[in-house]
Measured scan of single mutants.
Amino acid sequence: HNLTITQGKLFFHYNPKLCLSEIHKMEEVSGTKGRQERNDIALKTNGDQASCENELLKFSYIRTSFDKILLRWEPYWPPDFRDLLGFMLFYKEAPYQNVTEFDGQDACGSNSWTVVDIDPPLRSNDPKSQNHPGWLMRGLKPWTQYAIFVKTLVTFSDERRTYGAKSDIIYVQTDATNPSVPLDPISVSNSSSQIILKWKPPSDPNGNITHYLVFWERQAEDSELFELDYCLKGLKLPSRTWSPPFESEDSQKHNQSEYEDSAGECCSCPKTDSQILKELEESSFRKTFEDYLHNVVFVPRKTSSGTGAEDPRPSRKRRSLGDVGNVTVAVPTVAAFPNTSSTSVPTSPEEHRPFEKVVNKESLVISGLRHFTGYRIELQACNQDTPEERCSVAAYVSARTMPEAKADDIVGPVTHEIFENNVVHLMWQEPKEPNGLIVLYEVSYRRYGDEELHLCVSRKHFALERGCRLRGLSPGNYSVRIRATSLAGNGSWTEPTYFYVTDYLDVPSNIA
């Protein structure tokens, strides 16, 4: 807008934040220059609390790290170098490059900038070799853009010569660093050979998330399962459950009422301010606690030095998902009996873990797994792929695949051998790939016309006998059925096997 004052003059007093240069501009645009008398524009009460600059400061050096910015700028000295009290560095987070010096300023003089007072450097006698002032900004957020400017702080001049310097606002972004852990990993099994893994992005990506790394490792069953005799009275049979499938998407929606109208769909109840505040506090606490764990609990591995020492970490090797089922080394339970199943799973520490690289999504279907087997899954978020990966501390989750139908069934015939004193040795093959492992066998036998009897055969007993022995049988026709019990439950009964026990007292003698 054009402003013209045809008559009258300007009068400025007691404006401590208004620089004289701005008042002189007002004289020019209003056409009143030359009308004012000496005392109409006070030299001592206008701009006496402001830094009124008329020179431009330029930054000469900028260096960044993930949490620091090192700045240096060209030296500046007023005509009387004693008038320079120091520099004021202003900075704040700036997602967009549209910041002005006066953003967030209120009537009390406060604003949204963080201000650092910096002492002037030592003055050199040689004007050509003056030290460049600077400042190291610490405690910054990774991968965050900051708006920065600097200006001088000078003393009051009796001659009211307006001098000083100020830089333009520059924008500097800190470097990326390792992201925080992925949030809320959930693993479920939808079949006997697959596990579905879902997660949420890290709360602090500290860069642009480029991919996720998912490692999985087959877990050995508890050692007590191999040692305890679950045929003993009072000892509860062990059981394991597989990871249940995901709930429906509708039930997972946030901010939804727990109660549904019987007449149909209901609208979600909005969260109160107290609920939102509580969630923010919980989120802040979780982030602080995660940072504490990362800094205190997890110790970084030592990389190899120039002395030739090897990095103890196993090298990563990509495998196809079809090879995942046989990740671990199978060892027989008892070496003397080769027909026992290889369900003991000690994992070799030198073995390469299978892994998958996930790009542009937060889910993965891990296939080719062994049925009813526990897996430990390790999830890392990465925001750099080359020249070397920059990934987060791992988040861990466990899951067990679903049982395989008929995996616990005894394959092959049940054979028998009759000894003296009416002892019958029953023999059968253990299931080759049971659900988890076989903890015991149930032997059901009966003599024709009598009630059915049951015998429990422990895992250890089966390994020693290759089956079991029935003792003290009365003469007669017998039928026997056997079924295995694994961590997933009972298998199917075998087809009945028949044998006849004679009275050993009636056996004919070869003595003449």
Rank of each mutant, 00 (worst) to 15 (best):
Q384A: 15
E258M: 13
D385P: 11
T485E: 09
Y500M: 09
Y478P: 01
F246S: 09
R218G: 12
A395E: 13
E465R: 08
W216A: 08
N326P: 13
W216P: 05
T303H: 07
D323R: 12
P270C: 03
V414N: 02
E362S: 06
F246M: 14
R447A: 11
H254M: 12
L277Y: 06
A395T: 09
V397D: 07
T241C: 04
F355Y: 08
P300Q: 12
Y500Q: 06
F462V: 11
N383V: 08
E389H: 07
F337N: 01
E281S: 06
T386A: 14
K432Y: 12
E350S: 15
F298V: 02
E442R: 01
S348A: 15
A335G: 14
T415R: 12
H425E: 13
T494S: 04
G472Y: 13
S223Q: 14
N477D: 14
V365R: 05
E221V: 11
A336E: 14
T502W: 06
D385Q: 06
L453G: 03
L440A: 05
I410Q: 08
S342V: 14
I276F: 13
T333Q: 05
I276A: 04
E249I: 14
D385R: 07
S342I: 04
R319E: 14
L225A: 08
L470M: 10
I482Y: 01
F499Y: 02
D229G: 09
Y292F: 08
E221W: 07
D250I: 08
G322A: 13
R313S: 06
S479Y: 12
S479G: 08
A263H: 05
L369D: 01
W428S: 07
L464G: 11
V296H: 07
L369F: 09
E279C: 02
N255I: 13
I276V: 04
K361D: 04
Q252H: 08
C456V: 01
E350V: 13
N206W: 03
A484H: 00
E281N: 02
F462K: 09
I209Y: 07
K278W: 10
Q384W: 12
Q429L: 08
F246L: 12
G472D: 03
I438S: 04
A399Y: 03
F226K: 10
D323I: 14
P238K: 12
Q219P: 12
S274H: 05
L364S: 06
G449K: 09
A336N: 04
V393R: 00
G368R: 11
S344W: 12
T497R: 13
G322Y: 07
L487T: 06
R447K: 02
V414P: 10
Y396H: 14
R370M: 06
